[in-house]
Lab assay of single mutants.
Amino acid sequence: MAAAAAAGAGPEMVRGQVFDVGPRYTNLSYIGEGAYGMVCSAYDNVNKVRVAIKKISPFEHQTYCQRTLREIKILLRFRHENIIGINDIIRAPTIEQMKDVYIVQDLMETDLYKLLKTQHLSNDHICYFLYQILRGLKYIHSANVLHRDLKPSNLLLNTTCDLKICDFGLARVADPDHDHTGFLTEYVATRWYRAPEIMLNSKGYTKSIDIWSVGCILAEMLSNRPIFPGKHYLDQLNHILGILGSPSQEDLNCIINLKARNYLLSLPHKNKVPWNRLFPNADSKALDLLDKMLTFNPHKRIEVEQALAHPYLEQYYDPSDEPIAEAPFKFDMELDDLPKEKLKELIFEETARFQPGYRS
């Protein structure tokens, strides 16, 4: 834990890192770190609560700039109880001085990944967590956004079992017609939660990839272990087919990539493993919904509104309290091709509203 900075004593240090967030945020305490930044909790002297502050230093890398800009653009436009918001952003007053960006968010005690390492969940908890994931996802999908990296560590939890989806750095506007060349190379989302079509096709992607990830998360809540822990690309596919069985001819016809289709045709026939054999203690309604989410063919996979209306979630289902976005989200430009200098300018502009004396 960093010592509390005395008023006016300059930035606090946390594990050798400068955290320049005073005077409003003090009493910093280390939480963890990701690929390009550290997260601390801090005391907000204005709202009198502890908050989470993520320090991001992305400006050396085009990919990190892209992810940072995506996350900020999306989260500043989203407003939903099951999606983490941005409360404040701290950065230098000029673009030349801006080396880091500090993002202030609600402090959540833990995440689903940490929880599943230590606790076996009751059916009631599984049901409530799944409902909140789908409630947040309904809003995301209504904005025409794909999260693309749903996994237990991106689901934040607090002691009252509130759940918030975080990390929109890989999110995209849904565009089933656009052929994202190089899709697989830039697709760094965790393999275990990846839909089979991501490994088999490169053309376009749809909201059904997020539903697949939610199915993987439900299976993990039922058993405290990942359902498809593939060691590499082909191993991942083999794990999936080992449980779902061989795809039907109709399902194979959806695979545009001939090499991928021929690979699947070359494999020995596998039978589907019954879900109640894998999860003998699970609620039968939970397994019915799991089956509809972990469907090989993305066109037959359940959609988020149908999933919310499934009998497993009937005690929570309330369409009048499951809000959607006001308007579909649009990125003005494809960020993939922009140089990091341009992305830095866009991050600077996007964060201006939090600067003292800002006038829109």
Rank of each mutant, 00 (worst) to 15 (best):
L75F: 08
I103N: 13
D210H: 07
R353K: 13
R359P: 10
K138L: 09
C216A: 11
A2C: 06
L244Q: 13
H299R: 08
H310E: 09
G230S: 12
L308I: 04
L112K: 08
V145L: 12
L134P: 07
L218F: 09
P319K: 08
Y263K: 07
H80G: 04
S122C: 12
A309L: 02
G8C: 11
H141D: 06
A35Y: 13
G169H: 02
I198Q: 04
V145F: 03
E197Y: 03
E303W: 06
L134V: 13
P11M: 14
R148H: 07
K117V: 08
L107F: 03
E71H: 03
V214E: 15
K55D: 09
E250P: 03
C161E: 06
K73W: 04
H180I: 12
K151A: 02
S202N: 11
G8K: 07
A9Q: 10
S213Y: 07
H125N: 13
S213W: 01
P356A: 02
E303I: 04
L170F: 04
S41M: 13
A42L: 08
P280A: 06
V188R: 07
A171L: 10
G169N: 09
F348R: 10
R301Y: 04
F78I: 15
I198L: 12
H299L: 15
A4P: 02
F296V: 12
Y139C: 11
D336M: 03
M199S: 02
A325E: 13
R194I: 14
P274D: 07
E250L: 04
A219W: 11
I103V: 00
L258E: 01
D44G: 10
H147S: 09
K73I: 14
R172K: 11
H178P: 12
I227V: 07
A5P: 10
E349V: 13
Y139A: 09
R24M: 02
R353P: 05
L218V: 04
F168K: 03
I227Y: 02
Y316G: 00
D20Y: 15
Y113N: 15
P226W: 06
I347F: 15
D20R: 05
L116N: 02
P247M: 02
G10D: 12
P323S: 09
P11N: 09
I83G: 02
E12Y: 02
A195G: 06
N27L: 06
K117Q: 11
T351V: 03
I302W: 08
P11E: 09
A2V: 08
I126T: 07
M199G: 01
T160H: 05
I84M: 05
Q105E: 14
I83A: 00
L287R: 06
E109H: 01
Y36Q: 15
E197V: 13
D106E: 15
K117M: 14
G16T: 01
T351L: 07
N201G: 04
L278W: 04
Q132D: 01
R135Y: 01
I74W: 03
L267H: 00
E303F: 01
L184G: 07
D321H: 04
N262L: 10
M333W: 07
T185S: 14
T26E: 14
L289F: 03
D111W: 01
V39N: 10
A3P: 05
D177S: 03
F129A: 02
T68M: 15
H180L: 15
F348N: 05
R225F: 07
P229Q: 06
A4Y: 01
D332G: 10
T295F: 04
T68V: 12
N27H: 13
Q97L: 15
Q249Y: 06
E186Q: 08
D336F: 04
G245K: 03
I217F: 14
L184M: 14
M293D: 06
A189D: 07
V145D: 01
L313G: 03
S142Q: 05
Q119G: 05
C254Q: 07
N224C: 05
V188G: 13
I53N: 13
V49Y: 13
D251I: 01
K340W: 02
Q355K: 15
S142Y: 01
G22H: 11
L150W: 08
L343I: 11
P274S: 12
D167T: 03
K99N: 15
R261F: 00
N47F: 13
A7F: 03
N281S: 02
L115M: 09
A174N: 07
I74R: 12
D175N: 12
N27G: 07
Y25S: 02
F329K: 09
P356S: 13
D177W: 05
H269C: 11
P280G: 05
V104P: 08
S223I: 09
E220N: 02
P93S: 12
C216D: 04
G136W: 14
